[in-house]
Design a protein around this nucleic acid. Structure first.
Lengths: 250, 250
DNA sequence: GCGATCAGCGGCACG
DNA sequence: CGTGCCGTTGATCGC
């Protein structure tokens, strides 16, 4: 495609806040929180009507360069180069795409008022677990009245049958060293504020060996949750329902 | 665009491992690590030749749904619906896009042998800092011979003028509670293995108040580094170089 | 706006 | 492969 024609399309899209897709051969430079460069190659460029800017290669899931929404987009046609820029005034970040060849350019509007809904997040798990603390340990009772200072970011605060406080950190996937560090921080925080025994429980579908070692050295406990079977919200209640749910879903 | 025509383009792209972009009105469902749904709306769908799959709305930087490279892609034309699927055999993840209307479909190949190079990463900073430990504290000397057990993930291990070991954690942006937890874990690890005094220093451009409090309570020290993303090898306090570097870069 | 944390995190390097 | 951790992380929610 003629660069002039591509420029016309890009310019129209940018001036009128349309979405824009350009496919062509370009080099890309970025300066901001870090700095990056990539030599010429054929890539996909997407500019959204909210000022998001994406550069994709033909492989990998992630964009190689990008700028967030509300970037100030501009385009100019220099000698045999179509230059697209995204700049963030506040942070001073700059992204520059220099197109030597354009295979394809398309400006368009999209009508979309929907939002995605995601289920089985960590918050979902914690919420469900809250009502089933028995699966972790008999006699555990959730403490709902948060003394506001205690409950900062602790997933679940509970009391065991001996009256000890129990800090429960919930992870939706394999617990790592980070998770133990996090639990430890919370437990220490509660110990500082409450003159009672405080225990820590890490609740996850699995745990890495190093994390397990660290956890036990700190005197904490691991509790495996099979969240397919026990804890998923009303979405999938049990293993035997899973297949059915799946079939309904798809 | 006719759905039949869109199907032909999609089918050709998938069978021949081309890249594919489709713009149209669709609903999307996902089941895998989590579960998600979104009702009909006009979106951008990108399928790459490596089996990556992306669904973008007209706002925000991030894709709302996706599948990683090597997904098994398929398409079918049902009654008035063009269905695109991406499945991961190993993990059992499934993504389904149901297109009711297609504005645009395009299959294409891309030639791109380049890789992006990123500068001013945390590793870069740590490497540079290693040779300028004086900016942190006078008399600090890096310990290069790693006793192999010690050096796991510690950014910099050093010795101060009193012969104490110093664990240095480097962050390229504002240090948070997480960073302190991480440093603490490393310091404890070294203390366990070495019968010497061990100190901890957190090195970052800034630190949040909570993190500072936590850090000091643990007896660690914060060291502010003023780095500059433009000047990769000589980044400390080079304001006058910044403009020059910027000009060269762009 | 900053701060803290989750994410279907993705990607990378190392064992 | 899993483990650990960085990332121009992004997105969200609370203050």
């Amino acid at each position: 495609m003629d660069l002039k024609e591509a420029f016309r399309i890009a310019d129209d899209a940018i001036k009128n806040f349309k979405n824009l897709i350009i496919i062509g051969s370009c080099s890309v430079k970025y300066f901001g929180r870090a700095t990056s460069k990539i030599a010429e190659g054929e890539r996909i460029i997407i500019i959204k009507e909210d000022g998001s800017f994406l550069v994709h290669q033909n492989k990998k899931l992630a964009a190689i360069n990008y700028q967030p929404p509300k970037s100030r987009i501009s385009c100019e046609l220099a000698d045999d180069v179509l230059i697209l820029k995204a700049a963030n005034r506040r942070t001073g970040e700059q992204l520059e795409v220099r197109l030597k060849e354009v295979k394809f350019a398309y400006a368009f509007r999209l009508k979309d008022d929907e939002s995605i809904r995601v289920f089985a997040t960590e918050k979902d798990l914690a919420k469900d677990l809250m009502n089933k603390l028995d699966v972790i340990e008999e006699g555990l009772k959730p403490i709902k009245e948060e003394s506001s200072v205690l409950r900062g970011f602790i997933d679940i605060l509970a009391e065991d049958k001996n009256g000890s406080l129990v800090v429960i950190e919930v992870k939706r996937r394999t617990a790592t060293l980070d998770a133990v560090s996090q639990l430890k921080r919370y437990v220490e925080e509660v110990r500082k504020r409450k003159d009672k025994p405080v225990r820590g429980i890490l609740c996850a579908p699995s745990i890495t060996p190093n994390a397990k070692t660290y956890l036990e050295r700190e005197g904490f406990k691991f509790s495996k949750i099979d969240y397919d079977a026990t804890t998923q919200s009303d979405w999938i209640k049990s293993v035997e329902n899973k297949q059915k749910a799946l079939e309904e879903f798809f």
